[in-house]
């Protein structure tokens, strides 16, 4: 079954604040081991449970997440 939702994270703009991790109801997000060019760990998607609820994107202070959902 194809995923219901998905996200694109602009990792270069992510500041690694982790607020999105708390907001995700499906534990889809974790922090990267690598850092971006600014030196921040960034959010990565680690499973296919995303429902496209957009909670992560709404609380992201830097607006780095775009959300897709099969309608």
């Amino acid at each position: 079954m194809a995923a219901k939702g998905d996200i694109i994270i602009d990792i270069e703009r992510c500041k690694g604040c982790q607020v999105c991790l708390d907001a995700c109801p499906k534990d889809v997000l974790e922090m990267s081991r690598k850092v971006n060019s600014k030196g921040y760990q960034y959010t990565v998607k680690v499973n296919s449970d995303c429902t496209g609820c957009a909670n992560c994107a709404i609380v992201c202070p830097d607006a780095v997440i775009s959300v897709y959902r099969v309608k």
Binding site: A2, A3, K4, G5, D6, I8, S48, G52, A54, A57, I58, A63, I65, S66, V67, Y68, R69, V70, K71
Partner: peptide
């Protein structure tokens, strides 16, 4: 998995 990332599925962006 088939990607759902396409303009018609976009539900939230800046």
């Amino acid at each position: 998995e088939q990607s759902i990332i396409s303009p018609e599925n976009l539900v939230y962006k800046k």
